[in-house]
Nucleic acid binder design. Structure first.
Lengths: 192, 192
DNA sequence: TTCATTTCCTGTCCTATGTCAAGTGGAATT
DNA sequence: AATTCCACTTGACATAGGACAGGAAATGAA
């Protein structure tokens, strides 16, 4: 049942399958319907989710009150507000299901307990955060250095499933451009 | 001697000063002269540094071979290539002293040993990474949503010491703009 | 079905920023 | 002192992307 999660963990930190089964023991299956919320802003993120099926996104609001999509979470990625989860502070973001989703989820308490009991778990936890940090850094660099059409092209090549299910306006704000601009970029891209 | 480091740690994770002294025990003083390197690309980051004095920056090269400054590390911040340090992989970045620097530094081996021995240390380590992640996220959002002159203004207000010591071209590439554009932004800013 | 809403595309015009080339002043080198 | 760099500025022009308004197409509700 938890093969994907186990594989994900072994990819972050190689370990025997028997150890990995210990690590995943406290993850429980959760289903969230399309448009439902994993997390709402101003509440403390109490669970951390591995995406088994479906696509979610995180978003927040800018100063003018517009929604800004900050990340997409397709299957086999890890969805959580790290700051809120680990520091027990109110989240600044919403995490919402774009399609029906199934996850393996673990609460803060269970994770802390497992961190204490299972050295591999805490090492996995640390490396998982470091990986997220690294992905974010690459994304920031690509925002600084690449043009919007390069970033769009990168996104749909690395995660084509996003294009299938996600409204373009979400993708536009994720890329940091107006939805009209994305529309034009797509028009140009078709020509090539 | 290590007051600043101890204060930094207690700010990340409140704990008694006696516990904090355990945590900082393995940090050693290091001096790096202006233009010297904390870390070079392609080597594994073997030490993690708390900036006691001075300013450093990290940089990498873009596809056209231009240097891109990715971060500044003024006093009382934590300078390290997290991915290289924790995953033991070759760094993609250089970390260079912009002025003469003094740091408190710890090796990977000492940190791993202390992680095992001191629960507060590993909790501090995790929260420290989470904080870095959160700062990076805020920076990415400001890159997406704010104009270059807003970002410049944010930077010099939050870290005025950077402007004193750092060549403008480094600041420009950090902000993701051409140095000529930064020059014009500064001209406009003077008027206001 | 019909009506309302949302999503997406397109045209026009505008602004922020990039590119390239030239020039100034200061610091370092000889 | 003369020379060479380097950091920084400035001007002219080009371009990516934003703002706003209008309209087509898809979606959802009644």
């Amino acid at each position: 049942m938890k093969e994907n999660l186990i594989q994900f963990i072994q990819q972050v930190l190689p370990m025997s399958t028997s150890r990995a089964e210990l690590v995943v023991a406290k993850f429980k299956p959760v289903k969230i319907e399309k448009n439902g919320y994993f997390l709402k802003a101003d509440s403390v993120c109490n669970a951390s989710h591995f995406m088994e099926k479906g696509i979610a996104r995180s978003y927040t609001y800018d100063l003018e009150g517009n929604q800004v999509t900050t990340a997409f979470y397709p299957a086999n990625t890890y969805a959580s507000d790290l700051l809120s989860f680990f520091k027990r502070t109110p989240a600044k973001e919403y995490i919402q299901a774009i399609t029906d989703c199934e996850t393996w989820s673990i609460t803060y308490e269970d994770m802390q307990a497992s961190f204490h009991a299972i050295p591999e778990f805490r090492e996995f936890g640390r490396l998982n955060i470091v990986n997220q940090y690294s992905l974010l850094k690459e994304r920031m660099l690509s925002n600084l250095q690449e043009t919007a059409d390069q970033r769009y092209s990168d996104l749909i090549h690395s995660h084509p499933e996003i294009l299938q299910h996600v409204p373009l306006k979400y993708i536009a704000s994720y890329l940091g451009i107006a939805d009209t601009s994305l529309s034009r970029i797509r028009k140009e891209a078709v020509k090539k």
